[in-house]
Amino acid sequence: MKNSKFLRLAPWVVALVALLVVPFTASGYITALFLSLLMYVTLAYGWNIISGYTGYVSFGQVAFFGVGGYTCAILAKGGVHWLVGSLVGGLVAGLLAILLGLVMLRLKGAYFAVGMLGLTQLFVALAGALKRVTNGSTGIFLPPSLTLVPVYLTMLGLALAAIIGTIFLHRSAFGLRLMAIREDEEAAESLGIHTTVYKIIAFSISAVIVAIAGGVMTWYVSFIDPQSAFPASLNLTMVIMAVFGGPGTVWGPLVGATSLGLIAELLWARYPGLYLVIYGIILLLIILYIPRGVVPSLGDFLRRRGEPVRKRRSGAVA
């Protein structure tokens, strides 16, 4: 009994130890690659909470990436430690998301998706216009970070927190109610679920995760301007990675972010212009052929093959 639990946890422990030693042993290139992957994982999990679980498909979570980035940059410029700056960035984004959520989450379906896209463009335009705060299109330069290690470890911690948080979310009554909103918001409300509150909390948690990642990455690249704060490519990739792996699942974002993240890094180096095209094609194929994503489809496939499914996925509330 104890043994089997240990056996199940062992691979995770090994993976974690491996990830922990990467920045101390591997080359700078490999560490940077892993840092990118961890960022993708974090962002995909962040998106998954509002869009995968709650069903409010957002094409604009990158807005919070920029909010976190700018907060961190401005604070770091004023002498605050970057880690504190990133956490404050998360806090600012979380509070902002509560306010924005009050209005944006009244929109449904395509309106919400397009509205979030518009909101992101608004943020880009504002970042360019509010020169006193953001230094406009010139951007803010930060002292270059001399070592990758703290940035890497922070991102690892953030990714782990997002994953573990999602594991708990998936089994919690809170998560169940988010899924109920996704399935049928009116029915959920008729069962006594205060849907507005649940949606805003999910939106805010998602914003916090994305924003902290934005802060950390801004410190890492030591620079921020309106284009790098709200990168359109990141906006796309976090959606695609989560959808590829399986939105609204625990492991989908991990699978999607690591596999597509690796492809992105490889393609990015060789065909910097084309990788987003290839991403688009992958997304098309996924939607047409396995709209639920890789993880649930693979699960179904294994079950049909008659393999014993060890994990009893009783998401039942304890």
């Binding site: 169940l176 109610r177 899924m179 959920a188 008729s190 069962l191 679920i193 998401g315 039942a316």
Partner: peptide, 24 residues
């Protein structure tokens, strides 16, 4: 409490999850 004329269960959830979604 009410039911809907067109049935509205949470289709991707299990029977038990449907029941336990209800706050109390």
């Amino acid at each position: 409490a009410r039911t809907f004329q067109l049935t509205r269960v949470f289709k991707s959830m299990s029977i038990l999850q449907n029941m336990l979604t209800v706050p109390s």
